[in-house]
Design a protein around this nucleic acid. Structure first.
Lengths: 239, 239
DNA sequence: AGATGACAGATTGTCGGACAATCTGACAGT
DNA sequence: ACTGTCAGATTGTCCGACAATCTGTCATCT
């Protein structure tokens, strides 16, 4: 019934210049996306504590949208792991427990470790992404960026390590893990000091890589993640 | 407040006997889940070819449910990677291209390889899961199981390798990759012969592991996945 | 007293219909 | 040949409604 195997239906019948206008890019966002983004922001900013039930009607009234829209946004949040749905009982902000933090860090080690071990064979493009992410993190640290921004840059660096694998799916998984990790970090908001002294640690990691010491970098990363895991779990215990 | 994942949210305020009734388990499934399952089945069985648009009203009428329910099921499918949503244009069954197959296999190598390298330190429980998965696959091959069943057992074995990492999230990621892979395999349905000769290959892999030759098993897995990748991509080209 | 059963309130799951915004394709106009 | 316009189809979003389920309270029975 449909036209046979056309690879992708473009908008216009024109030949798609692609040379000109290549940089143009319109960001069309649905209402659901905006609601989900707002909820994410509220969770990360600590406005919604862990365990808070997210009532559909209340949210719909507050945000000025309908209940189905809120519902869809909530399923997005649940899929991301930021919230948990119990059948017939509704959705609530997830409570990060030590077990999941351990799990997340273990998964990170697998993804990031694989990236680090591929440093030699990685595209120059992805190596540059790591260097750039490092610079952006360290400058943010030195210029005294906000807690949110430091976290963002910090985790972006780790994601860039996964990017060395040159696999969009692995990178997407890493980003998903970072979202969950940000939730855990939002819980231990008060103990935010450990973000600073990690800049040097990351620089050392990249220097090991540039020197070609893959095994050293790998081991360094392992310890680095282990430390992060322990400090987060310890901080969680104090909440 | 929270249990660990599985046994959360019990019904009654009673003390939870747990000794008795431990095996009881009521499968409460929402309509959305059933619709999503039906769509998945149809995709894997080849009833819905790749690229087929999934119209909301038509599906709602066919399945005898309302449009919002279908909509939610479709977002589930999209989140799983089985379908693709283009804004204002609807949802269609994903078309696996060589690029994503390559990506999936590369990601698999990272996850499964990490599991294999942890064989020594892995829990006996997870090692047994690998052995069981192998047995179930080989017996299915010998007893001439259906194509669907062979695929299922085959991929389950690979997931069990990821299970050696002892990380629920990594396992979930692997399962998600396998779902996408099943979609690609459903496309090359006619060339299903390569499922047979891989049973020996898997047995050899486990034997290497049992012998403690981790490096050998690791390299073996790399080549095994590379072969799979090439044969799937080649088969895709013939469609 | 302790357990059982009934009931109201609240919340979700699902439904049907409705309307605006957008895309597609064809047709007419310059 | 390019542009403007319009009808049809489809999605995105909204509203209102109802049944099913969970929670907590209270009355009832042994």
């Amino acid at each position: 019934m449909e036209g046979t195997g056309r690879n992708s239906g473009r908008l216009s019948p024109m030949a798609e210049p692609l040379g000109q206008f290549a940089s143009l890019h319109l960001e069309l966002s649905s209402t659901v996306d905006r609601v989900a983004a707002e909820l994410r922001r509220a969770v990360f900013d600590g406005e919604l504590e862990s365990g808070t039930p997210l009532r559909e009607v209340a949210l719909a009234a507050s945000l000025g949208v309908s209940r189905p829209t809120v519902r869809e946004a909530l399923t997005v949040l649940v899929a991301e792991g930021l919230a948990t749905r119990e059948p017939n009982r509704g959705v609530a902000v997830s409570t990060p427990d030590p077990g999941s933090v351990r799990d997340i860090c273990r998964a990170r080690l697998v993804l990031e470790g694989a990236g680090v071990r591929r440093w030699r064979d990685a595209d120059e493009q992805h190596k540059d992404a790591v260097r750039t992410a490092l610079v952006r993190y360290t400058t943010a640290v030195r210029s005294g960026g906000s807690y949110q921004e430091l976290n963002e840059r910090h985790l972006a660096f780790h994601v860039s390590l996964v990017g060395l694998n040159d696999s969009p799916r692995l990178t997407a998984m890493a980003e998903s893990l970072m979202v969950e990790l940000k939730l855990a970090l939002a819980q231990v908001d008060r103990l935010r000091r450990n973000a600073h002294d990690q800049a040097d640690s990351h620089t050392a990691l990249v220097m090991l890589l540039e020197r070609g010491d893959i095994d050293g970098a790998s081991e360094f990363l392992r310890r680095h993640l282990e430390d992060a895991e322990n400090s987060i779990i310890q901080a969680l215990g104090l909440v």
